[in-house]
Design a protein around this nucleic acid. Structure first.
Lengths: 344, 344
DNA sequence: TTGTTTTACTAAAACCATTTAGTAAAGATT
DNA sequence: AATCTTTACTAAATGGTTTTAGTAAAACAA
């Protein structure tokens, strides 16, 4: 902790009261000009910085918010955190980031720690496991402003910020259809969060609109919570898919990790993308154009998700007017590259 | 901010003094068993959590540390942050991450904010621009424990954690030489931090040991601080290199961003890697094997750098014994893939 | 019985900034 | 001259925890 001078030090040095010094520094009308100047001069000279902790204690506000994400070590998450940090820094709020590592119990532990640490609000992107939002609802009831971002749930009523998953998935699938693909597989995470079903629904709607019959054998949901799970299961699933009766000619993957891992595994298994099988998926990797082949992606405005979520939270913290909760859905962007096109 | 019950609430409810309650909860010998049980029961029932801010104020410790990095939105940085977070969470410290965005002025702003926010210690990976360490030295003098990680400097004496850049660069260059490459270019950042020169020296030493004459025309240092700088300058540099009299048959890139961007640009310019030019570089991307071609890398133990740095900092915070400062250099790992080998 | 020790508690200060309530002195008003 | 207002300040409380110093009562020893 810093050992700067305090108001008291200034007061004693200048033979004033602590309250006078405090007021002088906040330019109160109650203090005369000469005194103000004297105090200001002394404060500057001795590099006075108000003790943030004392102020927090007094004001009952810490000007810090908690952020809970699955893992900081995830490209897409890091981009959103960048957006959160940008907005918060601009508005003089500090962020305390904690990682749930996709474990519900750890998520609860993070939240408890943050809450007792005195955050003014909470920004959370729940784990894939999370189905119980009661503890969040309780915190909310006891006065903690909460905003959900990226991964949403209907079980809690609050501000929410994410992308239009349905539309993004619809567009991805439509793009494959437009490029002549008919047997389109879909690989998704088995989370109960709405993003998974929304992307699945978008996929089905695009098929339906194109009058392509839905084939459940081409759709796989599975546990992607750990890297090991993902790699091993995904390899099995891809092997199975590619040896099935109705071998897919294209794949639409629903998450960042799934998309890039899928490409890596297809390469490893010796399949030529897109000749043997085309691929498009949700992903924000900035290496999409350097991949083999360059990967077509559904890009999410990650930075904006983060900064908007932060904005919603700070407005919730400031406003005690009961503005109704809203859900903001941003548009995704389709980035067509080689992995999803027959020619090129 | 949370509105939990306080010691005082418990005290009033049980008709005890605040100090008795405080002592009962810390299991002090001064409190009788019956009272302890009564207090503990009440505290549990009403979900008492000590107010972290009040405790910080009293103890003069916040159990939080500041972390300053160039950008959270950088794969390698995020991996190190994961390591820092892991160690700190384990030891009940909170981390407050701030981004310098490679700007020296912003770095100073971050540090000031963190310092006045009452951090117990600082973990910093300076910007490429940073050459002046006086402000850090001043903070150190006024009692703030500081640990440098990843990007080091001789200008400040403290604990430091990074990789053995010289050896990593030497091994990368040696690998290219062993694979028959002779005209090896080297692309590096123009930072004044030691990592750049160390990697450059490793490159030169490997050439010298192999009796390959050093050719300054094959070596390029340039400003990589922004993505725009990097992309545009790198493209120019690669164009120039590939059209020079002594066209390189291989390239060794010194940073994560340089390596992956270099590959992307070579692809874009139509050069076949490794046939036209081989490539190996420092990089921690988990997409190395999905790149076109799969990218040979010098991998840094990023997680360990982070967790070790955190460990050093926390030991500095606890220990007031003046253990001498040490610099820990971890070994890099060479990961040979297609981009650096003639046959495959 | 008197004096000493132990047990089990409490009052109050400390950490530092903010803020409410109040005071003394100067200046203005009638 | 007497009253009101304004100016420029201060004392003290507040926030919640920890800790120092202290007290009353019980237990024990002589």
């Amino acid at each position: 902790m810093n050992n700067n001078i305090t108001l008291r030090d200034i007061a004693e040095a200048l033979k004033l009261s602590v309250s006078t010094v405090s007021r002088a520094l906040t330019d109160s009308y109650q203090i005369g000009d000469k005194t103000k100047k004297k105090v200001l001069a002394y404060a500057n000279e001795h590099n006075y910085v108000p003790n943030r902790i004392a102020r927090s204690l007094k004001e009952g506000k810490s000007r810090s918010i908690g952020v809970v994400v699955c893992s900081i070590d995830n490209n897409f998450v890091a981009q959103m955190l960048d957006g959160i940090d940008h907005y918060c820094t601009e508005h003089q709020y500090q962020i305390i980031i904690m990682q749930s590592k996709e474990l519900f119990e750890q998520e609860k532990a993070c939240i408890n720690l943050l809450y007792s640490g005195g955050i003014d609000g909470l920004l959370i992107s729940p784990t894939y496991q999370t189905t119980d939002f009661d503890y969040l609802i309780n915190l909310q009831k006891s006065g903690l402003p909460i905003v959900l971002f990226d991964r949403l749930s209907d079980k809690i009523d609050t501000h929410k910020v994410a992308v239009d998953n349905f539309k993004g998935a619809y567009n991805a699938t439509l793009h494959l259809i437009d490029n002549g693909y008919k047997n389109i597989a879909h690989i998704n995470s088995d989370t109960k969060l709405s993003m998974a079903t929304e992307r699945f629904e978008g996929y089905k709607k695009a098929l339906a609109d194109a009058k392509i019959p839905y084939n459940a054998n081409l759709v796989q949901f599975f546990d992607t919570t750990t890297a090991d799970n993902l790699n091993q299961n995904l390899e099995k699933i891809l092997q199975a898919l590619m040896h099935a009766d109705t071998k897919p000619d294209a794949i639409f993957t629903a998450t960042d990790q799934l998309s890039t891992r899928c490409l890596a595994i297809l390469n490893k298994l010796g399949y030529l993308v897109p000749t043997d099988v085309a691929l498009i998926g949700f992903s924000n990797t900035d290496l999409a154009d350097a991949l083999n082949p360059s990967l077509s992606t559904i890009y999410q405005p990650s930075f904006e998700i983060g900064s908007l979520a932060a904005k919603q939270l700070l407005s919730l913290i400031d406003d005690k007017t009961n503005t109704p909760f809203e859900t903001i859905l941003l548009d995704t962007q389709i980035q067509v590259r080689s992995s999803s096109q027959k020619s090129k």
